[in-house]
């Protein structure tokens, strides 16, 4: 029988003891959200998602949160961890809390909380739909593919990385208070099509960006850029869209 490979340091790293403080809300019994603290022992290399799973599976089964792939691809588990929007599956415990410290976890802001860490994402996806997030090209396709040069592909490389986790939009101080702002995620998605050399609806999308609810509500607070788990330079992208609207209209 082949020798099994066991990572050496799994059992040598001392575990951390942390207090996990979660903002909980049950719409059927609570008037207001309230904090609840769960003492947890975990590895520094554990993800925040592992800690939440531990609490849900062994301590408090009613704890509600979204997660799906657990690998930073599906964008389901955006939450406010230690005061900042992050994906629970991409935040390692050692990066957000010290041994013996308290880790706060809250739902993302600006959206209605359904239960515990679960929010109603409908307004977020309404804003996404508003920018027409689909490829538009009415001309007949060529025999092969619609080709792009490497430079043209580079133009939309960052904005096409978006996984729609809402970390950016719900970190925006304008989105928290201004219910009609489309938000950074929708602008990033619009950028992905506006700067796609094969797409033909550039002017329509720039017109949507030029509306009262669009790109002019951005006040460059940079919270979106700091929060993005995919490292998209969101503020740069929004500024590019602003300038594109300005040049289109002049």
């Amino acid at each position: 029988m082949a020798e099994q490979h066991i990572p050496k340091n799994t059992h040598t790293t001392p575990p951390m003891r942390v207090k996990v403080k979660i903002l909980r809300y049950n719409p059927e019994t609570d008037k207001k959200p309230h904090w609840e603290t769960y003492p947890v022992e975990a590895q520094p290399s554990d993800r925040v998602l592992d800690v939440l799973n531990y609490i849900k599976w062994y301590v408090e089964p009613s704890l509600t949160f979204r997660r799906s792939c657990g690998h930073g691809i599906c964008g389901s588990d955006a939450m406010m961890i230690a005061g900042r929007n992050r994906l629970a599956c991409k935040a390692l415990l050692r990066d957000v809390v010290k041994d013996g410290g308290t880790l706060t976890i809250e739902p993302i802001r600006g959206l209605k909380v359904e239960k515990d860490l679960l929010t109603d994402m409908e307004p977020f996806f309404d804003a996404y739909k508003a920018i027409m997030p689909y490829f538009i090209n009415e001309s007949p396709p060529p025999a092969g593919e619609r080709l792009q040069s490497p430079e043209q592909a580079e133009r939309m490389a960052h904005s096409s990385n978006c996984i729609l986790c809402a970390c950016c939009t719900t970190s925006c101080p304008i989105f928290w208070v201004n219910g009609s702002y489309l938000g950074p995620a929708a602008i990033v998605q619009a950028h992905r099509f506006i700067f796609d050399s094969r797409d033909e609806a550039t002017n329509q999308r720039l017109n949507i960006m030029n509306q009262n609810t669009g790109v002019w509500r951005c006040r460059t607070a940079y919270n979106c850029t700091e929060a993005c788990p995919r490292d998209i330079p969101i503020t740069t992208i929004i500024e590019e869209v602003k300038r594109a609207v300005m040049y289109q209209q002049s």
């Binding site: 030029n210 009262n212 002019w216 602003k242």
Partner: peptide
């Protein structure tokens, strides 16, 4: 596009350069 249900929504979605012009101003 989010469909306008009220006059204010419709006005917000109407094509206008007002916000752009204020931004430049």
């Amino acid at each position: 596009m989010i469909r306008a249900r009220t006059f204010t929504d419709a006005r917000a979605q109407a094509h206008s350069n007002a916000e752009l012009n204020w931004w430049i101003f």
